[in-house]
């Protein structure tokens, strides 16, 4: 089932990669925000089915963005999946404690990204 995904990621190449990957496998519609602040605004305005959130971004990092998303009543219920190059167990744990439903580690396989997101949504009971 195609979904509306909001990608919050500052690297333009990865933005394109995720957009192509999710469109190609799953036919998802991907909206992009290049910073945490822009992500918060788009999340509130577009209310996507899922937010894919990078961790290391300038100004507002992914953890802070997630914390604010979960603070706002309009964005609180949107499932968040971290997509990060930081793969330490403590960071994965931190992401989960902030209310994310999953933590995917870069580099990811673009051919299975869609399936992985579906699996996370399913296990979070959001299907």
């Amino acid at each position: 089932m195609p979904r509306r995904v909001l990608l919050i990621e500052d690297d333009p190449d990865i933005q394109k990669m995720v957009m192509l990957s999710l469109k190609f496998k799953g036919g998802h519609e991907v909206s992009v925000a290049s910073s945490g602040q822009e992500g918060l605004e788009k999340a509130a305005a577009e209310h996507p089915d899922l937010i894919l959130l990078d961790v290391m971004m300038p100004e507002m990092d992914g953890y802070e963005t997630c914390r604010r998303l979960k603070e706002q009543s309009s964005t609180r219920d949107i499932p968040v999946v971290f997509l990060s190059a930081r793969a330490q167990q403590s960071e994965i744990q931190k992401g989960k404690e902030l209310g994310a439903i999953g933590y995917l580690v870069k580099p990811f396989d673009p051919m299975t990204l869609s399936d992985q997101l579906e699996a996370l949504l399913k296990s979070a009971g959001n299907k």
Partner: peptide, 18 residues
């Protein structure tokens, strides 16, 4: 360093995979 190395590899690996 982890971030700086993984980020370009994500694009390279992803583009090749696609």
């Amino acid at each position: 360093v982890s971030h700086e190395l993984r980020t370009p590899m994500t694009s390279v690996r992803g583009a090749l995979g696609l």
